[in-house]
Write a protein that binds this DNA or RNA. Structure first.
Lengths: 207, 207
DNA sequence: CTTGACATGAGATTTTTGTCTCACTAAGAA
DNA sequence: TTCTTAGTGAGACAAAAATCTCATGTCAAG
């Protein structure tokens, strides 16, 4: 059997794997969930090979979505002297926002692919990764000691809800707002949340 | 005229349509996207008939998701004398939260079915409906005149992001928090947002 | 009751999706 | 170079999903 598992041939395996992922990423951009056959063809690889690497196409789609450049906390705040958490969070949100709306179609495909799996408890299945929390932590880092522990954790989770690509779905499909309006709402919300967490951390009673 | 004669058959059509939707709703509860064949069988209807009613299964799944009881603003605040918007919003959120987590599997299926369509601009395709905004408006109603117009609109949109079933996905798949933790975060966040909107509406400068 | 129009059911058929086999190619070791 | 072996391609095969056709059943008007 030709199951790619031995270590020796790793270059070859790595390349075809990479080609498959790249091809999938390319196909996702038009918003349609591609079939494994589509991907194989686009990657100039036989159907059988494609199936060998990704028995479930969902796994491939998730991998492909990782190609989408996510804002990196380190880079984003590299030469940013400011330590005002409100400003920094807003800036981080702007970066995520821009990324999400620029890759809307691909993100939708990936989201749809993962949605039905977490529920069924399938475990050979890809899991959503969390790229927003590191970004949020980087933004809050300079001010971290101004928060109480509980406030800080709560704030991070709440911000994660606003930051994510899921919120884009709400703005587009449910509220029917355009990108600019969405950004304004999110900007206001994240700032308000940061302020609220800061304030309650300053007050003596309660956490 | 021949038309009214033909139209009289609507009872029959209505019943099979209803049966199909009910069957789909039943099948969605286990979190797997059912096949039209599955639905047809469960509805005691032939495949061909099912396909006649719903050429795309996604349309059927969306219809079926409507069966899920959404909290109704009128009923929820019927005997609630309180007019404190913070309390009322929190209460509304609790209701939505309970509904969303109780029907997680079905909601995931519906969400996945709609995600890839809005993007492609398919128009014979069902559209997400918005049940959360009326609820939010009902909760804010008694205090509506305490907000500036712009603040009010922004608040509603921000709350819609927190309220929705999409936030459940974030808590579960991305943050890996359980239902209780999710509720606490959301409760804190919605209250903070309401307070922020109220406060900025009281202040003279800026909107 | 009869009739016409429509809805339905039961396959046949086609398309799509996933699996398997086997020969061939090419990479790395000797 | 030659040998060994993992990775690949081509296509047969199987299973599932979607579409089409036509005979039958049933409703309601006359």
């Amino acid at each position: 059997m030709a199951t790619p598992v031995a270590a020796e041939r790793s270059n070859q395996r790595y390349r075809t794997r990479k080609d498959l992922i790249a091809a999938a990423a390319r196909l996702m951009k038009n918003g349609r969930k591609p079939t494994l056959e589509d991907v194989a063809e686009a990657a100039l690889v036989s159907r059988a090979t494609a199936y060998r690497y990704f028995p479930k196409i969902d796994a491939l789609l998730v991998e492909a979505a990782l190609d989408i450049a996510a804002p990196d906390g380190e880079a984003l705040f590299a030469e940013d002297a400011s330590s005002d958490p409100e400003e920094r969070i807003d800036r981080a949100e702007a970066a995520m926002h821009q990324m999400a709306f620029a890759n809307e179609a691909s993100i939708r495909v990936m989201l749809a692919a993962t949605l039905t799996q977490a529920a069924t408890g399938d475990d050979d299945v890809p899991v959503r990764q969390n790229r927003r929390t590191p970004l949020i932590e980087a933004a809050l880092a300079p001010a971290k000691d101004q928060f109480r522990k509980a406030s800080y954790e709560r704030l991070k989770s709440a911000l994660a809800v606003i930051f994510g690509s899921e919120s884009m779905i709400v703005f587009r499909d449910v509220l029917r707002l355009d990108e600019k309006a969405a950004r304004q709402v999110k900007s206001w919300a994240v700032r308000a949340l940061v302020r609220a967490a800061l304030e309650e951390s300053r007050r003596p009673a309660q956490g």
